[in-house]
Design a protein around this nucleic acid. Sequence first.
DNA 1: TCGTGTGAATAGATTCACAGCG
DNA 2: CGCTGTGAATCTATTCACACGA
Lengths: 246, 246
Amino acid sequence: MTLPPQPGPPAERSPRAIPEATVSRLAIYLRVLGQLAEGGAETVSSEELAAVSGVNSAKLRKDLSHIGSYGIRGVGYDVASLQHELEKVLGLDHPQRVALVGVGNLGHALAGYGGFGGRGFPVTALFDVDPDLVGVPLGGIEVHHVRDIAAVVPAAGVTIGMIATPAQAAQAVCDELVAAGVRSILNFAPAVLQVPEEVEVRKVDLAVELQVLAFHVARRSGGITEGVATVSPVVNGRHGSAVGLS
Amino acid sequence: MTLPPQPGPPAERSPRAIPEATVSRLAIYLRVLGQLAEGGAETVSSEELAAVSGVNSAKLRKDLSHIGSYGIRGVGYDVASLQHELEKVLGLDHPQRVALVGVGNLGHALAGYGGFGGRGFPVTALFDVDPDLVGVPLGGIEVHHVRDIAAVVPAAGVTIGMIATPAQAAQAVCDELVAAGVRSILNFAPAVLQVPEEVEVRKVDLAVELQVLAFHVARRSGGITEGVATVSPVVNGRHGSAVGLS
DNA sequence: TCGTGTGAATAGATTCACAGCG
DNA sequence: CGCTGTGAATCTATTCACACGA
């Protein structure tokens, strides 16, 4: 068999307004802002927001500067309005509909995950090949056969696909989703997906994550300390939980 | 804290460093090599291995150069020996034992995930707070109460912890794991963990992944084509193979 | 000759440090 | 004053292109 011919396309430049690394942190800031808002905070400084988000304040300010100037000098950021701006940038003003393919062990858990952190990403369509699953409703949503992706996905207005199938099936499912118009895919299968360049794939790869951790265990020559534990509720040892200097 | 830093000359760097970005790709190459080996391949070129792994060949060669010179000029890499070298570097020569905290919806799926991609990461200890779960065996492993982490984790020789609890519980569980000697943690809870710097945390954050995808959907102004799926944007390669779908 | 391995060039992300505004 | 926003410096990662070895 031949390899996917991917020599060297003439590198189409998209003028990326917001750096990729920044985008995923914006999502974290948004979550943290939600917690602060619940706690009654009206404003936050970059120092505070950064500390709770686990980044340093310069990075946070640079990240936020990419979406505009919503801070107040000498004060900080207004929690509510920053939340709103972040939601707008992340495209959360109108919710995305999600299709999940593969309702096995993992897929089942994903389907039941309740809006993924609270809100914004309703799973609207489910697919599998297993005859025992197809037709059965799961959390109020019927499981369709994978062969019906082309029909169901466009009708349901799905914009994001999640693949939680075994590795062998993942590429075929991915092709189906792409053919059905899906341009954003979250892949849980341990397989590298080949897609046209207009399709955005992100992967969640448990085996890779564990192997990276194993690498660090090995490198640190001895994962577990031999003497039994120290004190139990060891709070963080890093920069002070509130405001710390770098 | 790592090694005693050398005082005198400026900026003498450790020669052994493998870039972070490289490490996670090594895990992917290893998986792909496994597939190639099953397919009977003896050797691969960087071009081939890179294409299947979804990276370009220069990056792959640079990545592999960090672990040594195991290629044969004019030929490529010996599949079996490269596999072996990668396993060694990733610390997979002797398996890591994993503790999973939180045996709810997601945790249950993780526990049943069967060695995570096939091998090397046996889940050795399970924890939860739910009285209905504690004491019950799950896949042959008894679920302990979270309060017993300090006792069970060192005894079981756990080197990697996975947190699949609700967000509110995650930091406390993390502190327990760290106190029990765990230095590598995979966090599935939607929370930012504060840890001492000798602890390596990786996170799998579904909400963030989906929001990043939502960002790209929004930016591409119209994720799904509204016309019916007349288009099939010629997906590259890889069709005729045995596809488990019908 | 072919494909690895690698210096050099480029691109991207992070951190520093401070000007300037509220 | 205190804190944001940002140029400049630094560090990390990717890509190029070619010398060299099998």
